[in-house]
Design a protein around this nucleic acid. Structure first.
Lengths: 231, 231
DNA sequence: ATTATAAATATTGTTAACAATATGGGTGTT
DNA sequence: AACACCCATATTGTTAACAATATTTATAAT
């Protein structure tokens, strides 16, 4: 089960291709937050003309990675704590609900796969404490697997293509902060247990708590960071 | 408090203007569901060139009103019962959560406004049984008012600009079906009571039930319609 | 008749020039 | 020195032509 198991998109057209490129550049910070985007310049640097570039920018706007104002131009969004809170709240609502739906729709084989996935994560944690990055990817794999079984195409699309892209950006921003991964693993086990017992109510509640808990941790770390800066 | 109280958009640019036009034409059925869209033709009929038209189409795609496939073209979506179920589920999750947030964030003045709004609806129902259309608009006003106070800009944007546009399309599709409006009014009162008691848990649950109940009614009517056709 | 192949047409993707709007800087006035 | 105004420049919005791809039609073979 590879990282990022959902479709990597064909990139058939110039506009799509360059959209993916810019998206990654924004998420990884290669294009920094808040940077003004000048269409002419960006088009040159990606070796395309302004037409497809504008389409790419519009797509980026639709997943909230850039702000555009008519006649005025575009800039990369800035992830302040308000926006991150908004994203985590959305995630709590939508992924909670997706978990409820998935709990009903999953086959037993799906559930078995989930248990195996968690065992893999557990081993990877025991073996090596160092590689936090890989472990975060593991976290993503788990969440992807669950919500992708909810059978609601709108929900899957929104989580996969919009929320999780901004979430990746949040994680990049907070990647130097020290997280503990064990508690997350326990949460994950509890969620799969609830799914295994076919208890959608509980599964939703646990997923919600898992996410709101994650936000509380991030919020705290952000505040500490802020205080450091203001000293 | 007018119908559709949130921003009608400036329409400063050609692309935005024509986006709004096509959007309405799709929602009202002036452009029928499933219709193939040919850029050249549509551009001519709205008296613009293909550039801004393509931008408008992309926007329409981002709110799920048209499907686009590279090199192949666009067509207006078809509202089958699966898609309508998806939309109502999304609404249940997101608007339920928005209600929870709004319950915490609303001022007492907001709550008083809500009560006044419901009284107006009640009177309008008592006075005239006939004008179902207006009463549905009233229903929209109520929902708008609640979720617009949730303080989460992402949530508001998604509900207002995406979900509710498709929902309007659903309603157009089912506008000839016979609905009863009194039960909805009672639901609304119960929700505002929960908000007034500052009980976010309950407010969310009631809003969820209200929406899933609405879907059950629509689903039933759709099935009856289907059966009629197959006779 | 049906299927497969190839030319012709239609449609979308891309580019570059042009028009309209916003932005920044300088000049003059108070 | 601060403010308002106008001009020059930069940037975005729009158009029309061109290129690449998909779709249809016509033709030929089985």
């Amino acid at each position: 089960m590879g990282v990022n198991s959902l479709q990597p998109n064909k990139q058939d057209t110039l506009s799509e291709h360059v959209f993916e490129q810019i998206k990654e550049d924004i998420i990884t910070g290669a294009i920094p937050q808040g940077r003004k985007i000048v269409e002419t310049d960006l088009a040159k640097s990606y070796h395309i003309s302004r037409g497809p570039l504008r389409e790419a920018l519009q797509k980026l706007e639709s997943i909230h990675l850039v702000d555009r104002r008519p006649h005025s131009g575009s800039r990369v969004i800035t992830l302040d704590s308000t926006m991150m809170r908004d994203v985590y709240q959305m995630r709590e609502a939508m992924e909670g609900f997706a978990t409820r739906l998935a709990c009903v729709a999953m086959s037993q084989a799906d559930i078995d796969n989930l248990y195996r996935l968690l065992e893999k994560h557990e081993n990877s944690i025991k073996r090596s404490e160092g590689q936090r990055y890989f472990q975060k990817e593991g976290d993503l794999d788990f969440h992807y697997y669950v919500f992708s079984k909810c059978q609601n195409q709108w929900l899957i699309d929104y989580l996969n293509n919009k929320l999780y892209q901004v979430l990746r950006m949040c994680r990049h921003r907070t990647s130097q902060l020290p997280f503990r991964v064990e508690p997350a693993l326990y949460d994950h086990y509890a969620i799969v247990d609830a799914i295994n017992n076919r208890d959608p109510e509980l599964a939703e509640i646990l997923m919600r708590r898992h996410i709101s808990g994650a936000w509380k941790v991030v919020e705290k770390l952000l505040n500490q960071e802020e205080n450091k800066e203001s000293i």
